[in-house]
């Protein structure tokens, strides 16, 4: 089962290696990973998606807490949460089919953010399902390149990882 963890860490060099290394040593494949600073600039937030059962995940969370630079860990899969991912897709396109592509994108509230004679770049934000759907629709035109940010997530309501439940 895919699970999403939010990990608050000291914003210091090497912290990502420690966290990622821990997942690697326990044999977890990281499905996606996103890192950025928080309101407090000395703290970074790592959102990591892994494939694990509950028992394994509990172990990983305890191991994460053993890292001195880890401040807080939340298993967001246990709370109602919103998840988003940003994806940029470069598609083969020309004057003839550009409009068609535009139409597909707009029905998903996605945009074209760059146009050339042979290609367009689409920007899609949303859930994984939505992104997968668009990718499969664009496949027929010929996808040249894809880049995804990895999932980022927040708990619904006023609860936050800082003051809220830990995993």
């Amino acid at each position: 089962m895919r699970k999403v963890l939010a990990v608050l860490v000291d914003n210091t060099p090497g912290v990502l290696v420690r966290v990622a290394g821990l997942f690697a040593r326990r044999g977890f494949n990281i499905e996606s990973l996103a890192v950025g600073t928080t309101v407090d600039k000395t703290v970074s937030r790592i959102t990591v998606e892994v494939d694990a059962d509950n028992e394994m995940l509990e172990q990983v969370i305890k191991q994460l807490y053993k890292l001195i630079n880890v401040l807080k860990v939340s298993n967001l899969s246990e709370f109602p949460s919103v998840h988003r991912e940003l994806c940029l897709i470069k598609v083969q396109a020309n004057a003839n089919n550009r409009a068609e592509i535009q139409q597909i994108l707009s029905s998903f509230r996605a945009h074209i953010i760059d146009i050339s004679h042979q290609s367009v770049i689409a920007e899609v934000t949303g859930s994984e399902d939505k992104i997968e759907a668009i990718i499969s629709l664009l496949q027929v035109y010929g996808i040249m390149e894809i880049v995804r940010t990895g999932k980022i997530s927040l708990m619904r309501g006023s609860k936050t990882v800082r003051n809220g439940e830990t995993g």
Partner: peptide, 14 residues
């Protein structure tokens, strides 16, 4: 050496 010893130290510093 900090990279090498991540998995075998409780913590390390550069």
């Amino acid at each position: 050496i900090t990279g090498i010893t991540y998995p075998v130290t409780k913590h390390n510093y550069l």
